[in-house]
């Protein structure tokens, strides 16, 4: 296929998948209920942390640890939304709507389709992240000042971070394609593991050494640290030796490596799924 035609097809697949994803995400309720639904869950998650700090920490939410923890938790909203969301698309389309086989029979780029579906979830997550950060800034004295934000760093971190999470999602999507009864827990388990290991809600050095080493090996740890520095002007002392450029470099470099790994794994899983007739599997789980 000529490259300009392929590009147009990819773009069309992406656009239509984004629209479809948005409809699936939002049209089960009227806009008001949907807005409440989209905000209540992440805000409740943030408030759990607030009350844990208020119940214990000296100075409550004025504890020096709190801003970094709050920002980490807010940004982590993207992780289950994009990473688990993309892999969930496979389950939803195959098991619930029974239409994954039609995606494969249509002239559609599957990667663009999956990323498009992820964009709708990322859009909802973005609103939740912004509202959570506003709550922190306005009500909990989290020191985010517009003038103090490193816009270049935050932009770089957001773009590369979302690309990285999408690729993680595609990787998990590949695993989901060839699994039957385990696929429901995979996305949640991975997101839960990352929440624990990436120092999202506590300093990484609180973990036992062997878990801290695992955490340092995960690119999401560096992504969250970059966002903290961009928004708060300071991050965790554990990463003092790394400049902002180096942090961003780790995230971009990991994304490039992950791109090859995710596409390769997904293609392999796809071939296996075709060979074993798994594309239209209905497990009724």
């Amino acid at each position: 296929m000529p490259s300009d035609r392929r590009f147009r097809e990819t773009l069309r697949s992406f656009r239509v998948a984004t629209w479809l994803g948005w409809q699936i995400e939002s049209n089960w309720a009227d806009p008001f209920v949907f807005a409440i639904y989209s905000l209540v869950k992440p805000l409740a998650g943030a408030l759990i942390l607030v009350f844990m700090y208020a119940a214990i920490a000296k100075g409550g939410v004025n504890s020096p640890l709190f801003p970094a923890v709050f920002v980490g938790n807010a940004m982590f909203i993207y992780v289950p939304a994009v990473l688990a969301g993309i892999s969930w698309t496979i389950i939803d389309d195959r098991e619930h709507y029974g239409m994954l086989k039609y995606v494969y029979t249509a002239p559609v780029s599957v990667f663009a389709y999956l990323v498009g579906r992820g964009v709708a979830k990322a859009a909802v997550a973005t609103v939740a992240v912004v509202v959570t950060l506003l709550l922190g800034t306005l009500a909990l004295s989290v020191p985010i000042r517009l003038a103090g934000i490193d816009w270049l760093l935050i932009l770089g971190a957001l773009v590369s971070g979302c690309a990285m999470l999408s690729l993680f999602g595609i990787l998990l999507g590949g695993v989901t394609l060839v699994t039957a009864r385990h696929n429901y827990g995979v996305g949640e388990a991975v997101a839960g593991g990352l929440y624990l290991l990436c120092g999202v809600v506590f300093p990484l050095e609180t973990l036992p050494l062997w878990l801290e080493v695992v955490g340092r090996g995960l690119p999401i740890t560096y992504w969250i640290e970059a966002v903290r520095r961009a928004l708060l002007g300071a991050g965790s002392p554990a990463f003092n030796g790394l400049s902002n450029g180096a942090l961003l470099g780790v995230v971009v470099g990991s994304t490039v490596v992950l791109a090859g790994l995710a596409v390769g794994t997904f293609r392999l899983a796809e071939r296996r799924a075709r060979a074993r007739g798994l594309l239209d599997m209905q497990t009724m789980y």
Binding site: L65, V201, P203
Partner: peptide, 8 residues
């Protein structure tokens, strides 16, 4: 994760 918050 929540245990480590309390530990921190």
């Amino acid at each position: 994760a929540y245990v480590f918050i309390y530990r921190a």
